[in-house]
Every structure is written in C-alpha cells, then in structure tokens.
Design a protein around this nucleic acid. Structure first.
Lengths: 237, 237
DNA sequence: CTTGATTGATATACGCTGTATGCGTACAAT
DNA sequence: ATTGTACGCATACAGCGTATATCAATCAAG
C-alpha cells in the first residue's frame, strides 16, 4: 500500500493505491508491466478524469504507475508531451461516421460524437486552449471532417468556413457545459439567495439563470448545429 | 534600479525596473503609490499581455509593482482572485452598442467588439476555460446581451439559445485565432517541409493549410455571425 | 561463458511556484 | 498617550518540472 496525498481544488484527497512492484523472492526481474508512452498517457487521462487536469503532476502520475517521477522521462519528452498525448487520445476516440453518409448527417454525427467525448473528458477543451497543438490524432480527425465538406461539393473557402464554424460551435458548447456543471455544483446550497441578489443588478441574467441551470446541452448543441448546417447548405445551392 | 529575472517560456528575460521606494531622508512615509486590488489586476493584465499568462507569478507581479509577493495578499484573496479580476477587466472593457440600435446590428457590434478585446488579450479565453467563473463584469456584459435578444422579442428559450450560440461562436473563433498565431509563428521556418509531410497522411488538411494560415479571422468571424443571425431571425418571424 | 554496451529505473538536487505564519511599523480612533 | 488595525516584509514549507548522475538489468558480440 502506498499513500499519496492529492491536493485537489484545496480539498485534501488521500489516495491509497496498490503498487504492483512485487519482487518475487529470489527472482531478479520485476513483475510490473513495462512502462510505455501509451501506458503513461492512459494513466494521465484517467487521473485527469478523476481529479482534474490541474491536479496532475509527474510525481503523482509516477505513483499511480508504481514508478518514480523521473522514470516517465524515459518514454516521454516532458509534461507537455503528455498533454499532447492526452489531447490526441481523446480525438482518436471519437467514432467517425460511415463514409457513405450524406454530408448533413455526417456533420450531425461528427458534432455530437465529438461533443460526447469532450464532455466525458472536460479537461480537453481547456488543454486545447492553453496548448493550441494539433497532434496526429487531432489532424486525422480534422482531415476526416474536411473530407466530408470537400466531397459534398463545398469550395475550399467554404470548407474552411464550415470547419471553423463547426469547431467553434463544438468547443464553445463543451466549455459552457463544463462551466455550467461547475457553477451549479459549487453554489447549489445558496442558489435562491444568490439569484435574488443577482436579480438586483443583472435582471436579465437572473431571469435566464433557471433555464441555463437546467438546460440539456445535447439538445442545445443540436439546435445551433442545425442553424449552422442550414446556413452552410444555402452556400451549396 | 531593481533587477528581476523572468523566465518566460524557457527564455531568460531580464527586467530592470525603477523602484519608487524613496525613503526621503528622515521621513518615515514611503512615497510609492498605495497598493490596491485594481492596481494589482492592471499590472497582471499588462504582464500577461507581454509575457503570457503562464509566466505570471506572485513574485514577478510583486516585483513589477515594487513590492514583495506576500504584500499582494493584503488586497487579493489568492492568485485565482487575480485571474478573476483579469477576466472581469477584459469584459468590462468591451464597448456596448447604443441601446436604440436594432438587434441585428447590436449583435454584430457586440460580437466584433468582444472578438477584438479577446484578441487583444489572448489569455482570457484559456483563463475562462480553466476557471469557468463569471464575475460582476462578465455578468454585466451577459446581462446586456440578453437584454438585446429579449427586447427584440425573442422568447426566453430562444434568448438562451442565442446567447449560447453567440458565446460559443465568439470564444471558439478567438481560440482559433490564438492557436493559429502560435502555429504560424512557431513553425514558419520549415513550413514547406512540414506541409509536404502533412500531405502524405492528411491530404485534406494539407490542402486547407494555406487557407488557414493566411485567413483573416475578423472576416471569418463575421461570416459565421451572419449565418447565426439569419438562423435566429428565422425563429422570430 | 564472458564482456561491453545499451536501456531504463532511481536518487539527488535546483530553481521555481503559491501561500501560511509571524513580525514590525504607520496611522486612526479613543 | 494608548491601543487597534492595516499593510508591507521576511521566512518557511510543500510541491512542482526536470537536469544530472548513478546503478541494475538486459542483450549482442567475442
């Protein structure tokens, strides 16, 4: 048993984990699985899912893998490299639509699938924001999306427009979803009191707050997606 | 003269600054301007504009203000509080349209004005992403935008949709603008070589890359904005 | 089978971070 | 004149990313 203290958002979370470092008496080989970049990235993803990406550190990640922090550097350039791997991990996990699907359905599929994955790993968006890096997984995803528009007959310029709109819409909604979760979770106790105080200075916000708090982001996302699809369709005809 | 070593993105930047701490011989009072939360936030904003938000630390910020790091805590809860202040600073600086303006022009105004401010302080979006906090400045901005839609005759639900779309679109484009700047700046030397290698695996990306690199984000943003406005207008009629 | 090279885990250390704590001084109120 | 409060400062601590050096295990070549 190996204890690690994780300070997560000012709350101490004690994590005890079993280390698989079992020196079978007399044996000279260690029984633990070999360290690889992919294993490191996987561990980082599940760690970030559980404790948030801010709580991720090389030492904690090493502890999770039953290894010292510096051992990670034999398989990974640095922490940013791990971040890049995490981003790529998520992009690679987005299921892509059947190539025969018409472009509108393809866009619907891709958008909602990406939204789902991003929602599952809320840290991707903020990671993307601060890193601004496109690894092979993200590039493959982007390539597929661009292909959909190009093969639908869009001009290069309009394909570009379409990509940017789709990307903005998807990332923006993912962000709002993440934000909203946090806001509701954090202030749920005194919500009524806060609403009252809010209404004094920001009446329109207060009026919208209940709608915002209970909104179903999947539906919201699709609403905007349809407007975008319609707008793009008008460019085709 | 007071020397501070700032490690900014692994490059040592030496900052020499005049400290106004002048003990006039015999006098007991210090001559420097009093520290306030607003002065701290202002300094943080200009620092982040120059060196990036990641390079911001309490000690450096103190040095800029001619003060020790811990002195800041007399006026600010913690570093997150400073971040919140920075976000609010930007939102407060967005110029709002004339209340008599029709809703479409108001949206155009607000959108482009916000885009401009965000582009001026590229760190806001990533800060918003990781903090997900709405301070008074952001709330006032939001209130004004919601008022535009409500007074234009949108239902509460559609107002909500409109806000979410506008916010997503704006933040998404700001992000892409920031990302693109970084990407171009970083890899400019070997761009052709990279493009060739790119084309092998990601033909569509390679085809779009020049368009993406030279794109004018202001125009791009407005293109999408018009689609959104049209889509929302259809809900009104 | 021995030897030399290579691989990868570890230990230590450095400079940096946010911030808790305690101290001292300056000014306002009594 | 005294006391309370505000605020700048110095010190200290735990944690961070990671450079460097060391050491054990694996494997190729003789």
């Amino acid at each position: 048993m190996y204890g690690v203290n994780l300070y997560v958002r000012r709350k101490l979370v004690k994590v005890d984990m079993e280390i698989s470092l079992t020196y079978d008496a007399g044996m000279t080989t260690t029984a633990r699985a070999p360290l690889t970049r992919s294993r490191i990235v996987d561990a980082a993803v599940t760690f970030a899912d559980e404790f948030g990406v801010d709580a991720l550190s090389m030492r904690k990640l090493g502890a999770v893998l039953g290894v010292e922090a510096m051992s990670l550097y034999n398989h990974v350039d640095n922490k940013d490299d791990i971040y890049d791997g995490m981003i790529d991990y998520v992009f690679t996990s987005i299921p892509l639509p059947d190539p025969d699907m018409n472009w509108k359905d393809s866009v619907r599929w891709i958008g909602t699938a990406a939204m789902e994955r991003f929602a599952q790993h809320p840290w991707v968006v903020s990671l993307l924001m601060s890193r601004g890096n496109f690894g092979p997984g993200a590039l493959a995803f982007m390539d597929h999306v661009l292909a959909v528009f190009i093969e639908a007959g869009f001009s290069d310029e309009d394909t570009h427009h379409a990509w940017q709109m789709l990307a903005s819409h998807t990332m923006g909604y993912t962000f709002q979803q993440a934000t909203n979760q946090g806001a509701v979770e954090e202030k749920y106790d005194s919500l009524d009191a806060q609403l009252a105080r809010l209404g004094e200075h920001f009446p329109h916000v207060a009026r919208m707050a209940p709608l915002l708090a209970q909104c179903e982001f999947g539906r919201e996302y699709v609403f905007g997606l349809e407007i975008i699809i319609d707008g793009l369709d008008a460019r085709l005809g």
